[in-house]
């Protein structure tokens, strides 16, 4: 039997496979396809203080080995989550994180404080990296002082696992990681999507309503892997790696690069059962290579 448990700052996950925010709904969308309690964690859809209709459509463009999205944090707001969604999902036997986003620091504080009251939510993923909203979001995550400021403010009201989701659209992601670590982040997750765009040459118009969007899928994997490796060397807190993971092999690469856990995102759209397959594949790999614990391969890259 292989030990799959991993430590993520203040909490322990039963295994290192999580699903990424915005790609897994609230988990309930996947209940027809798989047993969601098998995976180590679910990060639910980005939640904001108030209801957001998100961006106009078109919101999606397929790209070679990936996709651009410009959803823009469509959600019904934190109160709706607390009153209607939380009761539905709280008894699922996995670690459920709420991705928290905002336009102002006060938004982040108020939303995080409300989530802090929920017993069955062991952590939040502070989203300071969404490229698809006009104010807030990525604006907070692209400079060290503003990233530090929002984490510091949220830390005061949020007592559980505070994971901070980082943007790759920066000069040095390691510097941002260090800045949020210094303000009390328990872990960091990366990468959010890369800023990108798509053009319809016939119409001479952008494909997305917002002109630019966030690129995800296997196209971004080498970038993500490199950033996870850089950040893991720069901070002491655990790193959660994501970006284009399609199978167990991809996930193992992130673990070797220094990630304590991984998040599966875009791949869920193509194979809604992929997260379970990744989990099984990691277990098989560990057995084949005679490891007794997944922790033995975290950061085990030989250079």
């Amino acid at each position: 039997m292989v030990d799959l448990k991993v430590n993520l700052g203040t909490i322990q996950l039963k295994n290192p496979v999580m699903t990424a925010s915005g790609t897994f709904g609230y988990g309930t969308e996947y209940a027809d396809f798989m047993d969601v309690s098998r995976i180590g964690g679910i990060v639910v859809k980005g939640t904001t203080l108030r209801d957001r209709q998100g961006n106009a459509y078109p919101r999606m463009a397929e790209t070679p080995s990936g996709m651009l999205n410009a959803v823009g944090l469509q959600n019904k707001g934190v109160d709706y989550f607390v009153n209607h969604i939380y009761p539905e999902i709280k008894d699922v036997n996995t670690s459920i994180f709420v991705n928290v986003s905002g336009s102002t620091i006060e938004d982040y504080i108020e939303t995080a404080a409300k989530i802090n009251e929920l017993d069955k939510i062991p952590g939040i993923e502070l989203n300071i990296s969404c490229p698809n909203v006009k104010e807030g979001g990525m604006a907070f995550g692209t400079s060290c002082p503003s990233a530090a400021q929002v984490v510091k403010a949220v830390r005061k009201v949020y007592s559980k696992e505070l994971m901070v989701k980082l943007s790759p659209n920066v000069t040095s992601i390691s510097e941002i990681a260090k800045a949020v670590e210094a303000e009390g982040a328990d872990s960091v997750s990366l990468i959010n999507t890369l800023l990108g765009m798509a053009i319809d040459a016939d119409k001479r118009k952008p494909i997305l309503s917002t002109v630019t969007g966030g690129l995800s899928g296997p196209a971004v994997k080498p970038v993500a892997l490199c950033m996870v490796w850089q950040v893991a060397k720069s901070v002491k807190i655990p790193v959660v790696g994501m970006g284009g993971i399609m199978n167990a092999r991809d996930a193992i690469e992130f673990l070797l690069a220094g990630a304590s856990a991984v998040q599966i995102g875009t791949a869920n759209f193509i194979d809604p059962t992929v997260s379970v397959k990744v989990l099984e594949g990691i277990e098989t790999y560990l057995l084949q290579h005679n490891f007794s614990s997944v922790n033995e391969i975290i950061g085990a890259l030989e250079i």
């Binding site: 915005g22 996709m67 875009t266």
Partner: peptide
């Protein structure tokens, strides 16, 4: 008809007003 990523309500890409 709309462009979709998932088809089962997870991605929120295919909305209409």
């Amino acid at each position: 008809e709309n462009t979709m990523a998932c088809g089962f309500g997870a991605c929120l890409c295919c909305v209409t007003d």
